[in-house]
Every structure is written in C-alpha cells, then in structure tokens.
C-alpha cells in the first residue's frame, strides 16, 4: 500500500450531504475484477451526461479542480454500499484525502486500506475549509498525518483524531493481513478454545 505522510494539494468542494457510494461509483462499474482504472468513472452520473459528455458545472470538471487531491465534503460521506470500488475510484482519480463532518463506517475503513486518509472535523472547521476549497487551484490545503493537522491556504490549522493503529499502517504503507498473520498463534489458540466451547460453529 502507498504511504501517506503529508499532502499539499488542491481541494475540491462538495458540500452535498449524504454523498453515497452509488454516486461515487455507480453499479455498472462494479463489474470489474481489478482494483484499478475506475478513476475515469468516479462520480460518473454527476460528472457526465447521458451521451458521456462532461457536465461543465460538476466540480471535478472545472479547470481549477481537475487535479484535485483532496475533497471537502458534506456530512455522512460514503454512506450506502460497502463497495471498495468507491475508494478505488477516488484513489485512481488522484484523491488522497477526504474531509467531512462524518463518514459512513465501512467507507471510512475502506479508505485506510487504500492509502486514503478520511478526516473528521467539526462543522465550523469544515465550513472554513469548504470556503477555502471554493477559491480554486490557488488555495492549497495541507494535510499532515504525523502531526494530525489540516492547514488551510491562509494558515489556519486544525487538529484531527485518527486511530493510532490506522495511522501507523498508513504512515508506513503496511499490509495489515501480513501484520495479522504474525498473530497466527493467538488465532490458533482462540480457534482451539472456541472449537471446544462451541463445537457447532
């Protein structure tokens, strides 16, 4: 997995609340058996018209945001389906961090497995960063995972919380399956004990 340390990049504003994973990557693109190549279909139904032409008003079609690396989004981002195709599509497009007041649980976890950092901040701070993002490509937001801060283009800095284990894995780009397999002895012991207590499982 790619490491995430610090990032300074263009942030795209998406104030809509409840942006669901069907919006992030519609179902017709889930038929792939690969993880890559979904960026072109990110937000497909908001981004393209029925003939496949770009809708100029959509934020990621605007010149200032075509190379955005951060999204500042409305509440409850990533709700709905468990599809990991959502973070795969974001990552393939180039989005490395999403900032919102809250995320749906499964989407939040899926991000960390793909080197994307989701950041939860209070409404007032998201509002400030949303305004900053509206300034376009000259306003670059900085995310520092080690120090757990987000800094707006005019230097306002906000701290954020992140689970220490998730932070460690992201900073080091670790494969958590490998880490869990190191605990095989514990899993073996649990399996033996549980197998006796609940043999029907």
């Amino acid at each position: 997995m790619d490491k995430f340390e610090t990032l300074t990049g263009v942030a795209a504003p998406m104030p809509l609340v409840n942006i669901d994973t069907d919006m992030i990557i519609p179902k017709q693109f889930l038929k792939t058996i690969k993880r890559s190549g979904l960026g072109v279909n990110l937000f497909d139904e908001m981004r393209y018209d029925d003939d496949g032409n770009e809708i100029p008003d959509f934020v990621l079609n605007q010149p200032a945001y075509r190379s955005a690396e951060i999204l500042v989004a409305g509440d409850n981002f990533g709700c709905g389906s468990s599809r990991e195709h959502a973070p795969w599509a974001l990552k393939d497009f180039g989005i490395k961090s999403v900032i919102s007041t809250s995320f749906a649980d499964i989407f939040y976890n899926n991000c960390f497995k793909n080197g994307i950092l989701p950041i939860v901040l209070p409404q007032e701070q998201v509002d400030i960063l949303m305004e900053d993002a509206r300034k376009g490509e000259n306003a670059r937001i900085t995310v520092d995972l080690e120090n757990q801060t987000v800094t707006s283009s005019d230097g306002q800095s906000f701290g954020f919380e992140v689970d220490p284990f998730k932070k460690h894995c992201l900073l080091e780009g670790l494969d958590d399956i490998g880490l869990s397999l190191e605990k095989s002895a514990s899993i073996d012991a649990f399996e033996a004990k549980a197998g006796q207590a609940r043999p029907w499982v």
Partner: peptide
C-alpha cells in the same frame, strides 16, 4: 453481522479474523 470492504474480505479469507 456486518458488511466489509474487499480488502477486509481478503483479510478474513486469509486470517478468519477482522481488525
């Protein structure tokens, strides 16, 4: 019972556990 992403599917297949 809950839903998981594909990376977690792989984790469960390999370890029968979830972090």
């Amino acid at each position: 019972a809950h839903g998981i992403g594909t990376s977690e599917v792989e984790h469960v297949l390999a370890t029968q556990t979830l972090i």
